[in-house]
Design a protein around this nucleic acid. Structure first.
Lengths: 198, 198
DNA sequence: CTGTCAACACGACACGTTCCGTTTCCCTAT
DNA sequence: ATAGGGAAACGGAACGTGTCGTGTTGACAG
């Protein structure tokens, strides 16, 4: 019986080679053309090894993208809500534009639509934390009087992130900084002037 | 050499059976599990026949969804912009919620991310016309003074459709009517009535 | 701290499956 | 007569699994 492998003995070298090969291949051929066989070959790794640690191609790509994208998309907190929003959104757009991550990102996002397991993992290690950070930042802005207490955080989140996903799905060019600012401005209830000073 | 088939002699019965079987199978098994072989078998049609008229599974599903979704998502014009927006958006959400169309819709949308030909066709016969209708309706509202002349139609479109795609991709429940209205209200520059004080 | 050793992750390769997209052959309707 | 439709089979690609040596690794003894 295949006992679950022991993570302690896992070869970090193989792991890295696999993830790197994955992003490279996604960039070169596009997500759909990438196969587990191809990844293994490029990484100089056995297919068996890939399947030992990941259940599917999607899972490999998810980890590869997560690995590469977490850093550029952290949520800053400089005290200036609008600026912070724009910074974070720009980070996301960069990841969605950079050749090395774009296809992999889109691929895993779309694959998660058909693979419940992948969707669950993506949500747990990615989407969920982002949403929490986002709302946390917005609540803080509320406390500081930069945002009305009654503002609907869900609506704001949808409206701010929505355009990126909309344009992505519909194959329109992604928003640039100026456009982003327009969106952010158009939706954030302009109560920037403190109702009460902090 | 395979001459291009003659559309005049095409069997409408086979076409319908194929499209119906496609939606059924998508609903039953999910888009990813559906195969051309399965479609042909369910439709009582030869695989050859499918490939004679469509280049790929994605193309079949695109036509099937388009066929089923065009009617419920037409853009109304009652003179009331907010109401019309909500109506059309509800139509889209219905298609994205109904079991028979949901999986097929999402499937073709995501597949188009990896298949340029499919993306092009989807844009030509679907997305493009919708965008045109949308902007046409908004310009009319501008002419009638229901929307400020300076309003950025692209921003409005992104912000209004964005939440649907965002929530779809991120696996959150789709907006309901009340939520939609909130979004629409929050973004439409309220020049609907003579400038009200706020 | 160091040498030993069994466990186990690894790479290589081969296997049975599934589905693809195409082809062949014959039938049928126009 | 022509051309689309149905049945069946094809080679090819990729899947996910299994086997088999090889060699690295971590644990333990001294």
């Amino acid at each position: 019986m295949p006992n679950p492998p022991n993570p302690q003995r896992r070869s970090e070298k193989s792991r890295r080679a696999t993830l790197d090969a994955t992003l490279d291949l996604c960039a070169e051929q596009g997500y759909a053309q990438v196969t587990v066989e191809g990844i293994a070959a490029r990484a100089g790794v056995s297919k068996k090894t890939v399947y030992r640690w990941w259940p599917s191609k999607g899972a490999v790509v998810l980890e590869a993208v997560h690995d590469a994208a977490v850093r550029p998309t952290v949520f800053p907190d400089t005290g200036d809500l609008v600026a912070d929003l724009c910074t974070q959104l720009s980070g996301v757009i960069d990841v969605l534009s950079a050749p090395r991550t774009r296809s992999a990102f889109i691929g895993v996002l779309t694959e998660a639509q058909h693979d419940p397991g992948l969707a669950e993992q993506m949500h747990r290690q990615w989407i969920g934390p982002r949403i929490d950070q986002f709302k946390h930042r917005l609540r803080k802005a509320q406390d500081q009087g930069h945002l009305p207490p009654g503002a609907d955080l869900d609506v704001i989140m949808d409206v701010v992130y929505g355009p990126i996903f909309h344009r992505l799905m519909v194959h329109l060019p992604l928003p640039d900084e100026a456009y982003l600012r327009k969106v952010v401005d158009s939706v954030l209830p302009a109560s920037d002037q403190p109702p009460r000073e902090r």
